[in-house]
């Protein structure tokens, strides 16, 4: 099925792909470094495992970034 990740189409397996699985597929090393919005709503990290993605879901990953002082 097709979903959108960070504005780009991505094809994933149909069954039981959770947000955690998707993060792994996209090589995100740790869930602690990313914030995830699904169809316009923030998702609590605690339930990344429990949410199964559906056709046409739109996700945005936002990573922590510091400044350039040091």
């Amino acid at each position: 099925m097709k979903i959108k990740v960070n504005g780009k189409d991505q094809s994933i397996q149909k069954n039981a792909v959770s947000i955690s699985d998707l993060l792994k597929l996209n090589k995100v090393e740790s869930i602690e470094m990313v914030s995830v919005q699904l169809n316009g709503n923030f998702i609590d990290k605690k339930i990344f495992d429990k949410i199964s993605l559906k056709e046409n879901d739109e996700l945005d990953f936002l990573y922590f970034m510091g400044g350039g002082e040091k």
Partner: peptide, 30 residues
């Protein structure tokens, strides 16, 4: 990479997006 947002009262704040600071050492600095 870079990211920026502007907060004004009543709108989405930084904590709305990032609940709390990341664990020590996880996010690399420049």
């Amino acid at each position: 990479d870079g990211q920026t947002m502007t907060y004004t009262p009543g709108n989405t704040c930084y904590r709305c997006v990032f609940n709390s600071p990341p664990p020590k050492g996880l996010v690399p600095s420049c």
